[in-house]
Simulated assay, not measured.
Amino acid sequence: MFKLAARQQWDACADGWNGKSDLIRNWLRESTDAMLAMADIKTGARVLDVAAGAGDQTLDIARRVGPNGYVLATDFSPAILAFAKDNAWRAGYANVETKAEDGETFEVAEASFDAAICRLGLMLFPDPFKGLKRMVHALKAGGSACTMVFSTPEQNPCIGVLVSTVFKHADLPLPDPYRPGGLLSLGKPGLMDELFGRAGFSHVATTKVAAPFRLPSVQDYLDFVRTSASPILQILAKLDDARRETAWAEITDKLGAFNTSNGWEGPNELLLTVGRRPTI
């Protein structure tokens, strides 16, 4: 039921999420470049992009590997993956293929990719360990994978504001931020290294990256949130109009704490974890 609801939510939000691609690209520009460098993506490489979404990072990979390289973008939402396919076609990248696959169970030939990445998707998996195992399976010996997830609640306060306020207005107990499938589920210190190691990766290392979300106003951030497939939207949808608007008003007020003289700047910290498939 969890995956079915999540898939339906992403399918419903696909158009809006794709419409925010430029905003997302600007927000994650430096951290995405770092992720691709850590995954050692080179000209001519075969690269697996897991939970690719609308695929703006897929285009970056396609450019890096060049016409002799290959990118397979997967996502469990066929609707959002259709945008990734169209965006690659519009950009003129004939080296991109898309395939609707669950990130925990996708099927590819063993040892068929030089590198794999997963940008802000792994933390939404009910069982991220399964996803990492599939990435190890897909990689050639010595091939690298790099994932990007949110770090601790303290370093990502805007997510905390959204979750705590929505759960309060829905009269629900505040969930454990590290619960499986949540936005912050993989932020616990040491957890990503432990999961990579158990999955079979060697040379595992995690780097913290600051990724502030800079926008003209808090309303611009909330416009972005409303196009996401966050579980908080599913909860808000169950409230009556008055309670829902009261919740949004309180969220707006609390997030106003991040207003600056140059607009709105929401703090975020990401974890980039890299590992290799052993050569022996």
Rank of each mutant, 00 (worst) to 15 (best):
Met1Val: 13
Gln8Ser: 07
Trp10Gly: 09
Ala12Val: 07
Ser21Trp: 05
Ile24Phe: 07
Thr32Ser: 10
Ala37Asn: 01
Lys42Asp: 10
Thr43Asn: 08
Arg46Lys: 10
Leu48Trp: 06
Ala51Asn: 11
Gly55Ala: 08
Gln57Glu: 13
Thr58Phe: 03
Ile61Met: 12
Val65Lys: 03
Pro67Ser: 11
Tyr70Phe: 14
Val71Met: 04
Asp75Met: 06
Ser77Lys: 03
Pro78Asn: 04
Pro78Thr: 11
Trp89Val: 15
Asn95Thr: 06
Asn95Asp: 01
Glu97Arg: 07
Thr98Glu: 04
Glu101His: 07
Gly103Thr: 12
Gly103Val: 08
Thr105Ala: 15
Glu110Phe: 00
Ser112Cys: 08
Asp114Glu: 08
Arg119Gln: 04
Leu122Met: 13
Met123Cys: 03
Met123Val: 05
Pro126Phe: 01
Phe129Glu: 15
Leu132Asp: 12
His137Leu: 11
Lys140Ala: 10
Lys140Glu: 13
Gly142Val: 08
Cys146Arg: 01
Ser151Ala: 15
Ser151Asp: 15
Gln155Ser: 15
Gly160Lys: 06
Thr165Gly: 11
Phe167Gln: 11
Leu172Glu: 05
Tyr178His: 11
Gly182Thr: 15
Leu195Asn: 10
Phe201Glu: 13
His203Gly: 03
Thr206Leu: 02
Val209Trp: 07
Asp220Arg: 03
Val225Met: 11
Ala237Lys: 13
Leu239Asp: 01
Asp240Ser: 02
Arg243His: 04
Thr246Ala: 14
Thr246Glu: 13
Ala249Pro: 11
Asp253Thr: 14
Lys254His: 07
Ala257Ile: 07
Thr260Pro: 14
Asn262His: 09
Trp264Ala: 06
Pro267Tyr: 01
Leu271Pro: 08
Leu272Gly: 02
Leu272His: 00
